[in-house]
């Protein structure tokens, strides 16, 4: 399948597809980070994670509209405000959901799956009723439009680079929170031994709620970033949820590094294959390979060694 391309063309194809893969990688990482916290640390299967992401996207969309109409001067920088709002909105909804729903189900992980699936249906219909079934897009500020021309064959879109930078920042932030803050220490303590953590004075209920909220908040930020590279519809979240779960499981739940590595592998494989095969076959091959590897190595790429 490589015969018809010259070496330099192949190089350009790989570079461009590699870059497209990096955009996909950013979305995967942003979604998977929140999920890795919720699923990996708490063991809750949040099927509504995609909808939390879409909430962030809709918040960004609203912000862009408001700013465009009422404060056009701020349009260049609205995105940063929107991102914070998206985090707060999704996080608050997440904490509410944890309080109303999830906390009753900690001992029944399979049931969280069904309940959050129900939640995702409700949220989808809510978005559809409020924002309409059509996909909406945000207007990008001028400085995010256009692309860098690296060579005459390789073009790199600026918004993609921006989203990638954002991904790196958020990942760093999550890393610092999980491994360098006292909250992170509490979360990890609760995960490893809930009773003991409670006994030494950690408020496990509050830790759970906060963890779930922050996981959902990160999904909201992912949604905000998602608007930079794609449009948002009520069911867009569902498109990514299975892929994201595979990313988390493939990386090895509870391992942030694994999540990033697996997001990178899956997105790169998919986008490189996409050029040579049809999009659907690329996806089939990638996912089948992942499932195959998971069957051989159920614990994922990176696994924490914990005595059970």
């Amino acid at each position: 399948m490589f015969d018809s391309y010259s070496a330099s063309e192949l190089g350009a194809i790989f570079a461009m597809q590699g870059f497209a893969g990096l955009s996909l990688f950013s979305v995967f990482v942003l979604m998977a980070l929140g999920l890795a916290i919720i699923f990996g640390q708490m063991g809750v299967i949040n099927m509504a994670h995609g909808e939390f992401m879409i909430l962030g996207a809709y918040v960004t969309y609203l912000c862009s509209h408001l700013v465009e109409n009422y404060a056009p001067g701020l349009f260049g920088v609205y995105f940063f405000g929107a991102m914070i709002l998206a985090f707060l909105a999704s996080g608050a909804l997440g904490m509410l959901v944890e309080w109303a729903l999830i906390r009753h189900l900690y001992k029944r992980p399979l049931d969280t799956l069904l309940a959050t699936w129900g939640l995702s249906l409700i949220l989808q219909q809510l978005y559809r009723s409020v924002f309409g079934a059509r996909e909406v897009g945000v207007t990008l500020p001028d400085w995010l439009m256009g692309s860098f021309n690296l060579t005459d064959m390789i073009e790199v879109p600026i918004n993609g680079v921006f989203v990638m930078g954002l991904t790196i920042l958020i990942t760093l932030g999550v890393y610092l929170m999980m491994f360098r803050s006292s909250w992170g220490k509490q979360v990890r303590a609760v995960v490893q031994n809930r009773t003991m953590a409670g006994a030494v004075g950690i408020n496990t209920e509050m830790t759970d709620r906060l963890t779930f909220g922050i996981g959902c908040g990160i999904a909201g930020v992912a949604g905000a970033a998602f608007t930079m590279i794609g449009s948002t519809g009520p069911t867009a979240g569902q498109l990514y949820i299975v892929d994201t779960f595979l990313v988390v499981v493939f990386g090895g739940a509870a391992s942030l590094l694994g999540t990033i590595a697996s997001a990178f592998t899956i997105s790169q494989a998919q986008s490189t294959l996409e050029f040579f095969l049809s999009g659907s076959m690329a996806k089939v091959f990638t996912l089948l390979t992942v499932v195959g590897i998971l069957m051989l190595r159920p614990q994922g790429l990176f696994s924490l060694k914990v005595r059970k």
């Binding site: 189900l105 049931d111 069904l114 309940a115 129900g118 939640l119 409700i122 219909q125």
Partner: peptide, 12 residues
């Protein structure tokens, strides 16, 4: 969809 979602949550 609201009914279906509610049903999921209620049953669980």
């Amino acid at each position: 969809l609201f009914a279906m979602g509610g049903l999921f949550i209620a049953v669980v």
